[in-house]
């Protein structure tokens, strides 16, 4: 199945598949993949991060579904 992967700030250099610049891109994953397993697969398991699925915070055990948007940020703040 396919999801959309969006990586931000310094993590945008870590996309596992080619695409356009910093832009989000589609990613093929197996059915039943959880956030934590995918993060490990793309080599970000050791990175401190803030993770969203479809605009909501998501834990590593969150099951991904077709068409989901997975967005990952490094620790950031400002304002």
């Amino acid at each position: 199945m396919q999801i959309e992967l969006a990586l931000f700030a310094k993590l945008s250099a870590r996309y596992p598949v080619p695409g356009s610049g910093r832009e989000p891109r589609p990613l093929e994953i197996e059915d039943g993949t959880r956030v934590g397993a995918l993060v490990e697969r793309i080599g970000l398991a050791a990175e401190p991060r803030i993770t969203f699925v479809n605009g909501r915070h998501a834990a590593d055990d969150r099951l991904l579904a077709e068409g989901d948007r997975l967005a990952i940020f490094p620790p950031i703040a400002g304002g």
């Binding site: 969006a6 931000f8 700030a9 310094k10 401190p48 803030i50 969203f52 605009g55 967005a71 940020f73 490094p74 620790p75 950031i76 703040a77 400002g78 304002g79």
Partner: peptide, 24 residues
């Protein structure tokens, strides 16, 4: 601290735009 030591110096306060947008 990653926020004051890396995120803010690199991108400024504007580092927030994408994450607040992502959060809706």
């Amino acid at each position: 601290h990653p926020v004051s030591g890396e995120g803010l110096p690199t991108y400024g306060t504007q580092v927030l735009t994408n994450i607040i947008n992502e959060a809706g």
